[in-house]
Amino acid sequence: MQRVNMIMAESPGLITICLLGYLLSAECTVFLDHENANKILNRPKRYNSGKLEEFVQGNLERECMEEKCSFEEAREVFENTERTTEFWKQYVDGDQCESNPCLNGGSCKDDINSYECWCPFGFEGKNCELDVTCNIKNGRCEQFCKNSADNKVVCSCTEGYRLAENQKSCEPAVPFPCGRVSVSQTSKLTRAETVFPDVDYVNSTEAETILDNITQSTQSFNDFTRVVGGEDAKPGQFPWQVVLNGKVDAFCGGSIVNEKWIVTAAHCVETGVKITVVAGEHNIEETEHTEQKRNVIRIIPHHNYNAAINKYNHDIALLELDEPLVLNSYVTPICIADKEYTNIFLKFGSGYVSGWGRVFHKGRSALVLQYLRVPLVDRATCLRSTKFTIYNNMFCAGFHEGGRDSCQGDSGGPHVTEVEGTSFLTGIISWGEECAMKGKYGIYTKVSRYVNWIKEKTKLT
């Protein structure tokens, strides 16, 4: 034993070699072989497995989906700052455009905790909710729209109204504003409101030439003092309507412009014939205590009207009353817009006519005020429907199939267009061939041609 100890002390290297040989010859039971080890760690190889990531292109799944990435790591994937920024906006807080917040056709661009709407022409605001041009839906104005110097929408209202708090709607500024039905039992019968379409306001006024200088022999019209197929109006439903009495009662109609003036057809009036105007009328054979009678003290036909040349060209006249009318729910003026808007309103496509005229061709006159909704007829169809001249200051309205029309005794009465609950004068009943005849239409004086003249002559002093 002493000898062994001496050998170990003198030859430590020998001992180490012996131990190493023993270990190498022993069977290893701690580690699995290569094949079995792979069965336990069965993990798919990654895209760049075996390579240094710093030297390969980034992978979106590896960089940002398996674990949260930084902007720089995302930049490695896209290799483009702009594309990385677009991805980053949604990656950080989701897609803010998912709810489609942009209105009126706006395009949404996502941002971090926010979004941006790219608005089409005519709109602005956070969600493109603000109209900035009158060309689109009248700028959301209830009545009139004008573009300011910086191309912003400025709404306005006709006389007797003021802008509401929203700067879009119009509200009454006087007790009985024009064009409004205020009798409670008839307010439910107000005709369907007309909503502004998209309009090209630059070209809204037709490029028409008034044929002022045409000389033409007097034409022989049949029954051209021209509501057939209409309905009984309720008291106060058309408070701007008046009836004219002269040699015979209810020979023509008219509309209240203001307390002192009536507008009617020029062919209705004769110099030297006494005319009485009755406002607030409903049943011409009954006294309903809503009527107001006034005498006409002055007749002003349009300066281009000449019955000797043509009885229905420039067929418009103004009547001055001896005493002002007292405005109330049964006696209310009709609204008159400017030339541009009167023309736009007419193009809405349908209007209402009213009167006490004959209820059928050569038949009896109506006792109760009649009204009828009539569609506008395109000019080409209008011209083809008659052998008589249709001037540019006239328009056609009615039904091709016949059966409904204005008729004798309705002449001078109103053709009105309702705009968001307020009625505007767009025409004056003038003439036609018979009444409600198939293929024939009622012919009306186009008020847009005469609004400046009306307003100039009827100013209240």
Rank of each mutant, 00 (worst) to 15 (best):
P12Q: 08
P12M: 15
I15K: 06
L19T: 05
L19M: 07
S25F: 12
L32D: 15
H34Y: 12
N42I: 12
G50K: 13
G50N: 15
K51V: 07
E53D: 07
V56Y: 08
N59K: 15
C69E: 03
S70I: 05
F71V: 15
R75W: 04
E76T: 15
V77Q: 15
E79F: 09
T81C: 04
R83E: 05
T84H: 08
E86R: 15
D93C: 02
Q96W: 06
E98P: 02
S107N: 11
I112Q: 10
Y115D: 01
Y115K: 02
W118Q: 15
C119Q: 01
P120Y: 03
F121S: 15
G122W: 03
L130N: 10
D131H: 15
D131A: 05
C134N: 02
N135P: 04
S148H: 08
E159Q: 07
E159H: 06
E159R: 06
G160A: 02
N166W: 02
V174M: 07
F176C: 04
C178H: 01
T186F: 11
L189G: 09
A192D: 13
E193G: 12
A207Y: 11
L211E: 06
S217G: 05
N222R: 13
V227C: 08
V228K: 10
A233H: 06
G236V: 05
G236I: 06
P239G: 02
P239Q: 01
W240G: 01
Q241P: 00
L244A: 01
V248Q: 11
C252H: 01
G254P: 01
G254V: 00
V263C: 02
A266K: 02
H267Y: 02
G272D: 09
G272I: 08
K274D: 12
K274C: 04
I275V: 10
I275Y: 06
E281L: 12
N295W: 04
V296M: 02
I297T: 08
N306E: 05
A308I: 07
I309C: 06
I309H: 11
K311D: 03
E320F: 02
L321C: 02
L321K: 00
E323V: 14
S329A: 10
V331D: 01
A337K: 00
E340M: 08
K347Y: 06
F360D: 15
K362E: 13
A366P: 13
L369K: 15
D378L: 04
R384A: 12
R384S: 09
F388P: 07
T389Q: 15
I390V: 15
M394T: 04
F399A: 09
E401Y: 13
G403E: 13
Q408S: 12
Q408W: 14
G409H: 14
D410V: 14
G412H: 04
V416R: 02
T422A: 05
F424P: 01
G432H: 06
E434D: 14
E434W: 11
K438E: 14
G439K: 10
K440W: 03
Y441W: 04
Y441V: 12
Y441M: 10
I443E: 02
I443H: 04
Y444I: 06
Y444H: 03
K446A: 08
S448V: 03
R449Q: 14
N452L: 05
T458C: 06
T458V: 06
T461M: 11
T461Q: 13
